[in-house]
């Protein structure tokens, strides 16, 4: 059973964290039964504020949304679906313009909106996302995947968690009440519980979790590398 968990979770770990994870034996000791992470909405809010101050320092574009109290980030993705063979630098597939409208007429692309919202049930952050064309039309997961270079193979609606739930599916946004895709928290809750113990602060745990779940969107990067190379690195 432990082996299975190892395999299930492996794709979601960012490469630069895998060593740390093995060192802290997170992957090996991951328990099947899930205990509640000892954290609360207000602890989550504080963690986010710490995260945001780091975020601003390194020029990442996460922002805080009220009412609702959640983190959000908007990324503009240039449409690569028609240039499969183009040998462009992968990094250039992702831009974070201050005004997406400036770029959009030059090259077709989509806007991806990422929200990190605290789940009172699973007592952990949950990643929600949705995609729109520059004209504002909502996109299906398939549309989004086709646009992003590499097609994000791990972001597959057919994949199931160990609790037999889709890894990614749609759900009402807890605050906006409209459909968003989300990464089901039941399979990350047990990992985050241990991550919290292994990290020396809530903020580290948060960066850890976000880069972990962000692996699903590779090559897009939900967190900039600056968090990891700085003092926020997990121990």
């Amino acid at each position: 059973m432990k082996e299975e968990i190892l395999l299930l979770h492996k794709p979601y770990y960012p490469k630069f964290h895998v060593q740390v994870l093995f060192k802290s034996r997170l992957l090996i000791n991951c328990p099947l039964t899930v205990m509640t992470v000892p954290t609360t909405q207000s602890a989550f809010d504080r963690t986010c504020q710490t995260f945001l101050s780091h975020s601003k320092k390194i020029g990442d574009t996460w922002r805080w949304v009220t009412p609702g109290a959640y983190l959000a980030k908007t990324v503009w993705v240039v449409d690569n679906s028609n240039e499969e063979t183009a040998s462009k630098d992968e990094e250039s597939a992702l831009h974070e313009p201050s005004d997406p409208a400036i770029l959009s007429p030059a090259k077709p692309g989509i806007t991806l909106e990422f929200h990190v919202i605290y789940s009172t049930t699973y007592a952990c952050p949950v990643l929600y996302f949705c995609g729109h064309t520059s004209a504002g039309t909502g996109l299906s997961l398939e549309d989004i995947r086709q646009t992003v270079k590499g097609h994000m193979p791990d972001l597959d609606e057919q994949k199931r968690t160990e609790y037999d739930m889709p890894v990614v599916s749609q759900k009402d946004h807890p605050i906006l009440g409209i459909p968003f895709y989300f990464i089901h928290p039941c399979h990350t809750a047990d990992v985050t519980a241990e991550m919290l113990e292994a990290c020396d602060s809530d903020a580290n745990y948060f960066v850890f979790w976000l880069s972990l779940v962000g692996q699903l969107f590779s090559p897009l990067r939900l967190v900039e590398v600056g968090y990891v190379t700085s003092e926020t690195c997990c121990r």
């Binding site: 899930v34 049930t121 699973y122």
Partner: peptide, 17 residues
């Protein structure tokens, strides 16, 4: 539906055991 029923189990017990 199953997602809700599993969430309910989690709320009651802190796990989906």
């Amino acid at each position: 539906f199953m997602s809700m029923i599993k969430e309910a189990d989690y709320i009651r017990n802190g796990s989906i055991k």
